[in-house]
Amino acid sequence: MTSHTISILVENHSGALSRIAGLFSSRGYNITSLNVAETEDPSVSRMTLVAEGDEDILEQIVKQLNRLIDVIKVYEFSNGSSVNRELVLLRIYFSKSNRLELVTLINMYNGKIVSANTSTIIVEISGTSSELNDFIALVRPFGIKEVVRSGKLAIAQVKSKH
């Protein structure tokens, strides 16, 4: 089982999302994360989708995606072919004694404290999915109340000019 990142340009109108989701669900293929937003052209949306599963089934799904009338283009990003980012918002418990340690960790990961009260803070961090995983593991001992992740965003890597 490997993780696949698929980026889909699709007509920005109702129904497109369910057509795409339907292709995955009808094959018992679970979507790990999904992101949808308008592109530079407001009539087009981009979906960035991460799914795990069998290579052959995925190849089939990509073909079927291309067959959907609403789908304009499908990109499959393999390792290194894209720049990937994910955003996470965390609500973390803290106390007077460990506050400094927590802030140090947040700074190490270029995080931002968005909001705080006397016992919890909300932290915003962006990075690659594995950086976020690391950060979450590091702050887990403080006590995490809530994790909200955006799911992966991906953009094709700039081609190097030799």
Binding site: G15, S18, R19, G22, I69
Partner: peptide
Amino acid sequence: VGISRPVTKHNFLVD
């Protein structure tokens, strides 16, 4: 549109 989605080549709900 929901019911027929998996059994049509395409479908439209006229808006």
